[in-house]
């Protein structure tokens, strides 16, 4: 026991000495030589947390240094996202940033935008599906859309997340793409996708627009049907379900995404090393198996690709939020 303690103490002391005496060039060369903190702005047990933890576990294996996931929850994501942006850009504090970073500043909740980060890699995106109860009379998305068009605004009720959340915007975007007013379908705010799916099965709602993995268990239980997905291609989970473009010739697509980022100003050598390592993880069997088992979609975008992806997403979200009347700025 004493032996181990002494040895690890010596390592810590040596690491401390190394980072004190030697210049930044050496620090970048040897990156990483101490534990890395990985901030997750959402609670333990959720999808973002799971994605963050599997990637951290694989990073730890690649780097041979502990990668500790820290859940900085609170403020509906604001607190954690701010903690990532505000950390020292030395590569020892990284984080997973989610679609909310492109939404929160429009709602006036924070000043932070995607520009406040050094993007490293985009690794996951899940499209919303259009789900109805299995007892619903609508068999195809076209029938549902026609019924919505024919009914007075607000007759149909949809849910999937809170007011102004990503799935609410997906609904607004779909309505606009069909040339309908954003409130043609009334949004019933819910505390996440699971309660919304339950209420759909209990007969309290007409449709949900949450992500396909979130709706999966109810669909598999035969309590719900997925009519279409709002993505460019069909999902691996339900290859029989058409995309909106295939079913109605509406090219509208959106999704909730998760990517890894560091505070702004991360030295390029470290950023490149991280992006390269994340690419290796993305290609690994473990990552593919894990994400496949959870039903999460995988996409890859390197640092530059991720930056331009976020710019596009930022604009799309801003438009939808302005249409829904949620945007403050």
């Amino acid at each position: 026991m004493t032996k181990i303690t002494r040895r690890s103490f010596a390592t810590t002391a040596a690491a401390a000495a190394a980072s004190l005496k030697l210049g930044p060039a050496f620090a970048q060369e040897n990156y990483p030589n101490r534990p890395i903190q990985m901030i997750c702005p959402w609670g333990a047990g959720g999808g973002t947390d799971a994605t963050c933890r599997i990637v951290s576990a694989l990073l730890e294996k690649e780097f041979g240094q502990p990668v500790n996931v820290v859940n900085r929850t609170g403020g509906s994501g604001v607190v954690g996202h701010a903690a990532i942006a505000g950390a020292t850009p030395d590569g020892y504090t990284l984080g997973i940033i989610t679609v909310e970073i492109a939404m929160m500043h429009w709602a006036g909740l924070t000043e932070l935008t995607p520009k406040n980060y050094t993007p490293l890699a985009l690794m996951n995106e899940d499209p919303p599906g259009i789900q109805v109860s299995s007892t619903s009379p609508y068999k195809t998305v076209k029938e549902l859309a026609d019924a919505i068009k024919a009914s007075p605004p607000g007759k149909f009720k949809a849910s999937g997340t809170g007011q102004g959340g990503i799935w609410h915007l997906a609904l607004v975007g779909w309505m606009q793409a069909m040339g309908l007013p954003p409130n043609q379908v009334a949004w019933v705010p819910s505390n996440g996708a699971a309660p919304a799916m339950q209420d759909l099965a209990a007969g309290g709602l007409d449709l949900t627009t949450c992500s396909v993995p979130e709706a999966r268990a109810m669909i598999d239980a035969g309590k719900s049907r997925c009519l279409a997905v709002m993505s460019p291609t069909r999902t691996k989970l339900y290859p029989d379900v058409p995309t909106l473009k295939e079913a109605m010739n509406i090219p509208y697509t959106t999704g909730a995404w998760r990517g890894f980022a560091a505070p702004k100003g991360l030295p390029a050598p470290i950023a490149n090393k991280l992006t390269a390592t994340l690419k290796k993880i993305y290609d690994s069997k473990e990552y593919a198996e894990f994400m496949g088992a959870r039903g999460f979609g995988t996409v890859w975008n390197d640092a530059n690709g991720y930056a331009s992806f976020m710019d596009t997403a930022d604009k799309q979200m801003g438009d939808a939020m302005k249409a829904a009347g949620i945007a403050k700025t």
Binding site: G74, G75, S76, V79, A82, L109, T110, Q163
Partner: peptide, 21 residues
């Protein structure tokens, strides 16, 4: 307190980010 309400707007948070949740 917070913005986890049906309206999704900050309520009684007095401008403190930590209270949003």
């Amino acid at each position: 307190v917070g913005m986890e309400n049906p309206g999704g707007v900050p309520r009684f948070t007095f401008g403190i980010a930590d209270l949003l949740g």
